[in-house]
Design a protein around this nucleic acid. Sequence first.
DNA 1: ACTTGATTACACCGATCTGTGTAATTAATG
DNA 2: CATTAATTACACAGATCGGTGTAATCAAGT
Lengths: 192, 192
Amino acid sequence: MRERILETADLLFYQRGIRAVGVDTIAAEIGISKRTLYNHFPSKDELIAAYLAGRFTKAPRSGKPPAEQILGTFDRLERGFASKGFRGCPFVNAVAELGTEDQSIRKIAVAFKESRRLWFRDLLQQLGVADAEGLATQLTLLVDGSIAQDLVRNDPSMARAAKEAAKVLLANAGVKVDGQNVRNEGNARIID
Amino acid sequence: MRERILETADLLFYQRGIRAVGVDTIAAEIGISKRTLYNHFPSKDELIAAYLAGRFTKAPRSGKPPAEQILGTFDRLERGFASKGFRGCPFVNAVAELGTEDQSIRKIAVAFKESRRLWFRDLLQQLGVADAEGLATQLTLLVDGSIAQDLVRNDPSMARAAKEAAKVLLANAGVKVDGQNVRNEGNARIID
DNA sequence: ACTTGATTACACCGATCTGTGTAATTAATG
DNA sequence: CATTAATTACACAGATCGGTGTAATCAAGT
């Protein structure tokens, strides 16, 4: 039951916005009484927090080469953009909608952003990139930038643009990409 | 009077979110009657549209070298992030909050994003960049990415990370940056 | 002084919001 | 069968929402 409530809340919150969806709407959508919903979640705020916590999915660990994993992120992004229900990053949207004052929600959003940055960083470290921290941050900018742009433009190709930029940044850091050969001894050299 | 309403609505909408601010709140904040507000704006929706239209500021035209103008964007971003009231991109926030179905608002947001992309593109063309269209798109990703990241993290240094990434992208396209020397004949070579 | 237009106070509308109280109903367990 | 726990229907609370109707007030211009 709790999961049914959560998945319905997830769908409606993400699709229409948190403030735009009332608890009555959620209960009615499932076909349960409002009382039942409040028996599982003491307040809407806790339901919102649970919704965001449920969106906190770890990045998949795979055996593929790190560079492929990194660039594969943008392929998954593009598929996500093209899928029907895509409506931007739920964490960014929540902070944008609910404001910065709500610390509990902002903390979840920060934790998610940071977890993805660290995922990038670890892969970059495996690749021997010198400034893995900085480059990981830059990659997250491309990710969130393409998400924001797709949200307003509804243009999945933004993911590909981000991927191309990521390739350049990776190559500049000495990572071999797409069979390109790159040396990185003091002066990086990009061969396209 | 109309401007007073607009600037107050701007402040409250941007700071607290559009759905979170009622017309009564706006009128009370100014100290006018709700009737007066509705005499200037027939509905809240039109007030929202006017709010976004007012946020539509053209990028400044200056006589500085194109490369400096482009990179200066990120310096201005960083100052914006560090300023007290910064709360992300009002257009992205509006779309995130009001949903994609509201076409009139989404159109304003798209127009703004596109205007900034074209501003980048024109400067890149002045620099003789081959794929000015594509690179301009990539730069907007860095801009919007840093905005989104700063919104949740409250970390103005995201603008600097975006600037560093932009430098790499520019250099890779053969633009001379920071006194770096770059050739771009077939194979770009980056010297840091 | 007279007219015109803007603004005011204020009550009111129907709808919706989060949240609660309560008593009846259902389903599983012993 | 009896107990227990969950769920139900439903009314209701108090607040807020966007928006309107109306008559009084105010200020400026001719």
